[in-house]
Structures are given as structure tokens and as C-alpha cells.
Design a protein around this nucleic acid. Structure first.
Length: 744
RNA sequence: GGACCCGUAGCUCAGUGGUUAGAGCAGGGGACUCAUAAUCUCUUGGUCGCAGGUUCAAACCCUGCCGGGUCUACCA
């Protein structure tokens, strides 16, 4: 039995559909890898599933008047449907709302809280309790997650900014920054109140993590083995020193903190749940358990996760499990540090051997952006294009070393040029020639020419050479090398020119076709991880012997063809071929243009997740109000006020006489405003929109009686009025009145 | 403000000290006509972001700067 290897793809957050950027980041490369391993006969389990807990889902549900369960049910279906349609060959696609996940998460929590595996002892096992002040809604009687606090953005003035981020200007905020904060639940003004949370002592675990990363436990120095973009980020966190992180939250939608533990700790557990980024990665474990149960062997998950046998002896050699996490770069810290720390403290779990994180994929030169409709949704795209075309094209553009760009001309070029012209046409010409000249039977070869031998040598070397690329996570190269075999075939076919040979030397023509057909047969195996549908069709055309499946539940019986068999000629002389068909249809210019138009004028029912391309384990979940999701629209009209409300605001004309950047502040400008009767200092969060020179000398409208506020240690006495267009750009409200003039 | 990744041909990208810097696509010339107007071949094209430095030798190592990206901090 080969060594067990567990491969995971980041759990998509069930708060919106996923787009091509997600697919390229964490799913497609994992699927290439896993299918290759299955063809090699490895014992691999490919685990994924929806990440369904957390406040973001709760907020969305509330906003849409649905239950969180409704939200996750809907997106779970859309996401899984899209991923399956793209050919992701998961052994299991689970859900973190499943009972087994709750049980597994509780068990992790309990173990760390009562019997941690490492010699780290705080007041709650390895955990410690931390008390802090959180915003509390006195009307609803609940603590408010940052997301549940709304107010006016101090940077751009958006009246509906969230406590963690302003969706309008993208600023990262905290609830305390919001002007006129209010509860999203009741509109009550939040008060500060003490609350207690469990903290994961990452600071304590840091030495263990560093040792593990250096290879103390298994001799694998991950600082050297992993990609620089991964180690770079991990190093930077380690150098800064890991800080303890709260792993519980006062919200409703999550896995409850075990009551007995809370009681023992003297903490009121009501309303406390385990934070989503603690439970989400445990989803890899619980989904594996769900898989094992579905296999009728509930203990089978231990083969992939546990480092020790039941009798306590350490697994070695072929028993020792391997773990590989495919993620996007936004998840590096969680998979390189936090989750390993959790696994260590729980004890007996395998730690990742590789975390091949990809960078981000851009679309037509710009970031994927839901709010601007600049995105291609996976489930939607696959309604118009075969999965194989997407798999291959995206596979050649994977952001393996740096951010990459997906554009539709490139997509068309890859499909038409590589798949149809180079690969499809090679297969087609070899097959149709055999049918028209040799009755559809593989001709017997004569004496091999130097060129024919060279092709057979290339076939013999291909599985190992290309396999090494898969094994080292170099998928773009693997794809290139695979298609390059078809190039070799075309050249050979062209140079030999069997349509001439057949007139002068039939046996030479037979040899040419024999060799070309062997190459087709090998390609039908080597193409399987990349374009599984086309590979299967090709094998059918060739009437090839049954092959091991690259899908789960692979039949491992010995007489099926596998990856390594692609090295040898697979079609004996006289073998009858099936009917040739076109392997890939070309994509018409009009189809591509239609797709471009679709992008330019999005009609897709957009969801709302903006930035992170792979949103698993979100530290700061990102999304935005549904009202603004469709197209960037005008801000909704605020509630009606009476004149007296307005009259309270003292607006004045003021001339900006001093403007300068504030050191160490990215967004703030320090302004001095001449009001005629006095000159006062105002800090304005416009540094990302204007340079000091651009604002100097302007006479603008300010709120002159706003309570002063300190920012960066400097007092700000008032606010500059700004107009914000739908494009998010700010413009001053200017006047030619004299400084000090009242504005009514 | 700090950290990390990146900047190579018109485009998308390989290339981490050792001949004359590469591939695919696009452009130009040619060949072929079995095949999805496909293929094959030759070819144009680069101050390797800029400026210094180390070295017999630098796209690669060091320093600074410019530009793109990401994480993170200050603001609390």
C-alpha cells in the first residue's frame, strides 16, 4: 500500500459564488495534482467543502431577511455545482455546518483546553482567557461583532460603513473609528462592555512552530522547500512575533463553546461561539471523517491524519501520512502557522508537508471586483464553455510565482491554438489517415527511422519527466510539456509526410502512423489530469484498454493502464481504432466578443464578496451590503430629519492655508483652515485622493461645530465636506464665499 | 511606517552567477496539402525597471531609487 496523502483545497466561504480567480488559486492546481497521483496509483484523498460559519453569513442573512441556513444552503449548492462542473475530483465536498464538524471542532477545542499535547499550560489548558471591552447593544442585549456596527466612514463619509471596513472606499476600520456608530440590529448606540474570550497562545507556540518549519520533526526544512512567496510571509510574521488571538466570539452563528468548559472557567457561555477561523480548517479533518463514514469505514480518516497507530507507536515509512494544502496567498498565515499550531496542541496530527499557495489572478489586467461587476463566475462561465477548455487555459496561466492575468484573447488563443490546432489536429490527422489508408487498424511498423526512434524515446521519457513537474507543483510547466508532445508529433508527421511515403514505400508510411498513434495513446493518458473529458474521448477513439480512473474510488486493480504505462507503445499492430471525431471545437471570435460584452455590462446576479480570492478562514470577512451589489448606484437616501436637526450643524466656508501629510499615516492629511475669525486644525482622511498641493488654497465647506477628536495624537476640530460620486472618487464642496461665511 | 513578492521580446510568461538571455502567441518570409484554412520551417524583435557596487564573470548577489501587488502597523 502506498503512502497515504491527503490533499486539501481552501474551503470556499459560503457567502457568495466563486470565480475564476478562486479556481486558479486553490482548486485547479490541486485537482491536477490529485488526478496525477491517482493515475500513479497513490493513495490520495482530496478534501474540500464549504466554510459555513461566521458573522459574515449572519449579516448577510439578516440583511436579506433569511436564515443563515438558507444562505449557506444556497451558496453551498452553487459553489459545489461550479467546482464539480469544472471537474474538481474531490473525494468529499463537505460542509462545516455538518454535525460531525461541530463534534470534531468541539473535540479540538476541548483537547487544547483540557489536555494539550505540548507542554504549554495556561489557565485553560493551552488556551488562556482574555478580557476586553467590546461594543454591546443595550437594546438587543448582545455583543456586536465589528460587522454589526455601522456608522459614517471617517475616511470617505460613507454613512453605511461597517465596523471593520468601509466598502465604499476600502478603508480598514475599527468600530471605534466610525462616526455616530449604531447597532445594525436595533440602531441603538453601542456601549462598551467587558467580555471574556479564549485566546490561542500563538506566542507560546512560536518556538515549536519555528522548530517544525526548520525540520526538527521530519527533516524537511520548509523555509527552503516552500515557495518564496509563502516563506516570505511566514518569516515576516515570525519576526514580528506571533500574538495570541481570540478564538471565540460573541455572535450567534457558530459552534458553541462547550458549556462545561465555560462553567469551569467561570465564564458565561451563552452567545459565545468558536471563531470561524478556528473551526474552518478543522473542516479538513471533519470532512475526511465524513468521507470515511461514507466509505463504510469510519476510522479510515485516521490513516491520513494521525501520526501514530492505535497502539501508540509512531507511523513510519509507507504508513506515515502526508498533508498538502492548496490555498490562495491570502491564507498563508493560517495554513503555515495557525492551523499547524492548532494541530500541534491537539496532538497526534500530521503537519503539512507543502503549502503551495498561489498568487492572485487578475482579469483583463484588473483585479477581480464584485462590486464593479468585474468578475467571471465559475458556474456561469461553465454554462457556455466546456470545462476542459477552462482547465487547460487557466492551467497555463496559473499565478504560481506572481500575480497572473486571465484575459479572453489569451483564453481563445490557448483553446484554438493549443488544444484545437496543435493537439486536436494532430490526433485527428493521425486517425483519419489511418482510417482512409489502412482501414482503421494500427499498421505494423517497419524499420524505425532515426526520427521514429526519437519519438518513441520521447514517449518513453514523458511520464517520468512530466510526473516530476506535477510532483513539484509546477503545473504550468507540466501542461506545456504535455502539449509539446503533440507538437513533436506534428513535426514528425510533417517531416515523414506519410501521404508521400505511401506512394513510394508503404512500410515507411506504416511506421510513421504506428509511431504517431502510439503518441496519441500516450497522450490520452498524460492528458487525463488536464482535460479529463477530452482524454476519455481520445481513448474511446483509440479503442484503448481500460485505464485507472483519475476520479475518486479509483479501481486499483493491477491490470488497468496507469500513468507509467504512457511510456510504452500501447496499441499493438492490427488493433482496431474507433471513429475519429473532433477533439476540441474552436472558439469563434463572436463567442469571445460576447463574453467581453458580458464583462463590460455585467448582468450576472452579482453577489458581494469583494477582495479575497480564496475566502476560506477569513480573518476579516469581506463583503458589502446587497443594496450596492448589483451595480455601483447612488447611495440610498437617508432618513428624513426635521429642520432643527439640520440647524444644529454649523457649516462654514474655510480656506485651506496649510496642508501636509502626517508621517506614518497613509490616509490622513493635516489641514489648517482659515475661518476668518480663527484658524483651526482639521485632520482629513483624504490623503489617498489628494496631494497636499492639490488642496492648498481652496475654500471649502466645513462642519465647524463637530466635537473635536484626536487622531494620531493630533486634534481634529471639524470635518471637510466632500462629495462622493458613484465611482468612489471624492470632490470638494467649494465656494467662493469669504472664509468664515455661514453655509445654510 | 514596516515586511514580503514581482518588474525579462508587441502580449502572456520561463530563466537565482558561467558560451551569443529563452518559450508560446502575435508580426514577416518559405514549405506542405494527410488533417479542424490545420501543420512544419526560417525569421524580425530585448539598455533583463533605473543608478551604483561586489566579481575574472551579474537578469541572477549587495545598496539606493522608481513602478505594480500583498500582508501588516500606527490612527485606538
Amino acid at each position: 500500500m502506498p503512502r497515504p496523502i491527503l490533499v486539501t483545497s481552501a474551503l470556499p466561504y459560503a457567502n457568495g459564488p466563486i470565480h475564476l480567480g478562486h479556481l486558479a488559486g486553490a482548486y485547479l492546481p490541486a485537482d491536477f495534482f490529485v488526478r496525477y497521483l491517482r493515475l500513479k496509483g497513490e493513495d490520495v484523498v482530496f478534501v474540500c467543502g464549504s466554510d459555513e460559519m461566521g458573522v459574515a453569513i449572519e449579516v448577510r442573512a439578516r440583511k436579506e431577511g433569511r436564515t443563515p441556513q438558507d444562505v449557506i444552503d444556497a451558496f453551498h449548492a452553487v459553489i459545489e455545482g461550479g467546482l464539480r462542473a469544472a471537474g474538481m475530483s474531490f473525494d468529499v465536498y463537505g460542509r462545516t455546518s455538518a454535525p460531525i464538524h461541530k463534534a470534531t471542532t468541539t473535540e479540538f477545542f476541548r483537547t487544547i483546553a483540557t489536555d494539550p499535547a505540548e507542554a504549554i499550560r495556561n489557565d485553560q489548558g493551552a488556551f488562556r482567557l482574555g478580557t476586553s471591552e467590546q461594543l454591546f447593544d443595550p437594546e438587543a442585549g448582545v455583543f456586536l461583532a465589528d460587522r454589526f456596527v455601522v456608522g459614517t466612514c471617517p475616511v470617505c463619509g460613507n454613512p453605511n460603513a461597517y465596523g471593520d471596513q468601509c466598502e465604499r472606499c476600502g478603508s480598514t476600520l475599527s468600530p471605534a473609528e466610525l462616526i455616530d456608530p449604531r447597532s445594525a440590529l436595533t440602531s441603538a448606540t453601542p456601549i462598551r462592555k467587558e467580555t471574556t474570550h479564549w485566546m490561542l497562545p500563538l506566542g507560546d507556540v512560536q518556538p515549536l512552530l519555528e522548530g517544525w518549519l526548520r525540520g526538527d520533526r521530519d527533516g524537511l526544512n520548509r523555509f527552503e522547500a516552500w515557495k518564496p512567496n509563502v516563506t516570505g510571509q511566514i518569516r515576516s510574521w515570525l519576526e514580528a512575533g506571533l500574538r495570541d488571538r481570540a478564538i471565540t466570539r460573541d455572535i450567534a452563528w457558530g459552534i458553541p463553546v462547550p458549556e462545561d468548559l465555560a462553567e469551569a472557567a467561570g465564564v458565561d457561555a451563552s452567545g459565545k461561539v468558536i471563531y470561524v477561523w478556528f473551526d474552518a480548517p478543522i473542516g479538513y479533518v471533519s470532512n475526511t471523517k465524513a468521507w470515511a463514514e461514507a466509505q463504510g469505514d469510519p476510522e479510515r480518516w485516521t490513516r491520513y491524519w494521525r501520526t501514530h497507530h492505535e497502539d501508540g507507536t509512531a507511523k513510519t515509512g509507507d504508513d506515515a501520512p502526508r498533508l498538502v494544502h492548496f490555498i490562495g496567498k491570502d491564507n498563508i498565515v493560517f495554513h503555515g502557522l495557525v492551523f499547524p499550531a492548532m494541530l500541534m496542541l491537539t496532538g497526534g496530527y500530521v503537519l503539512p508537508e507543502a503549502v503551495p499557495a498561489n498568487e492572485f489572478l487578475n482579469l483583463e489586467g484588473e483585479k477581480f471586483s464584485t462590486s464593479r461587476g468585474h468578475a467571471i463566475w465559475l458556474h456561469d462561465f461553465l454554462e457556455r464553455f466546456p470545462a476542459d477548455t477552462l482547465r487547460y487555459a487557466l492551467g497555463t496561466m496559473l499565478p504560481e510565482t506572481k500575480d497572473a492575468d486571465f484575459n479572453l484573447s489569451e483564453f481563445q488563443g490557448r483553446v484554438n491554438g493549443d488544444l484545437a490546432d496543435v493537439l486536436g489536429n494532430f490526433v485527428h490527422r493521425a486517425l483519419t489517415f489511418t482510417h482512409s489508408k489502412f482501414g482503421g487498424a494500427v499498421p505494423a511498423p517497419g524499420e524505425l527511422s532515426t526520427e521514429a526512434k526519437a519519438v518513441l524515446d520521447a514517449i518513453a521519457a514523458a511520464p517520468e519527466r512530466i510526473g516530476a513537474l506535477y510532483a513539484s507543483y509546477r503545473f504550468r510547466d507540466a501542461l506545456y510539456e504535455t502539449i509539446d508532445l503533440a507538437r513533436t508529433g506534428n513535426k514528425f508527421f510533417n517531416d515523414a509526410a506519410p501521404w508521400h511515403q505511401i506512394k513510394t514505400d508503404v512500410q515507411a508510411a506504416q511506421t510513421t502512423l504506428y509511431v504517431s498513434l502510439q503518441l496519441c495513446a500516450s497522450l490520452s493518458i498524460l492528458l487525463e489530469p488536464i482535460v479529463p473529458d477530452a482524454a476519455a474521448r481520445l481513448r474511446r477513439m483509440l479503442n484503448l484498454a481500460p485505464m485507472r480512473s483519475s476520479m475518486p474510488a479509483a479501481n486499483l486493480s493491477g491490470d488497468l493502464l496507469g500513468w507509467d504505462d504512457a511510456a510504452r507503445p500501447l496499441l499493438p499492430p492490427g488493433h482496431a481504432l474507433g471513429a475519429p471525431e473532433v477533439l476540441f471545437q474552436k472558439l469563434d471570435d463572436a463567442v469571445i466578443q460576447a463574453e467581453r460584452d458580458r464583462l463590460a455590462a455585467p448582468t450576472t446576479p452579482a453577489d458581494d464578496s469583494t477582495a479575497p480570492q480564496v475566502q476560506t478562514v477569513p480573518d476579516v470577512p469581506v463583503y458589502e451590503p446587497v443594496a450596492e451589489a448589483e451595480t455601483p448606484g447612488f447611495a440610498p437616501l437617508a432618513d428624513t430629519i426635521v429642520y432643527d436637526d439640520f440647524a444644529k450643524i454649523d457649516l462654514r466656508a474655510g480656506k485651506i492655508v496649510v496642508a501636509e501629510r502626517i508621517p506614518k499615516a497613509d490616509k490622513l492629511l493635516r489641514l489648517e483652515i482659515d475661518l476668518g475669525f480663527e484658524t483651526r486644525q482639521i485632520l482629513s482622511g483624504i490623503a489617498e485622493h489628494f496631494t497636499p498641493d492639490e488642496v492648498l488654497g481652496r475654500t471649502v465647506v466645513i462642519v465647524a461645530n463637530l466635537a473635536p477628536r484626536k487622531m494620531r495624537g493630533l486634534e481634529s476640530a471639524g470635518m471637510i465636506l466632500m462629495a462622493e460620486g458613484r465611482d468612489g472618487k471624492l470632490r470638494f464642496v467649494e465656494t467662493d464665499a469669504e472664509p468664515g461665511a455661514t453655509v445654510q
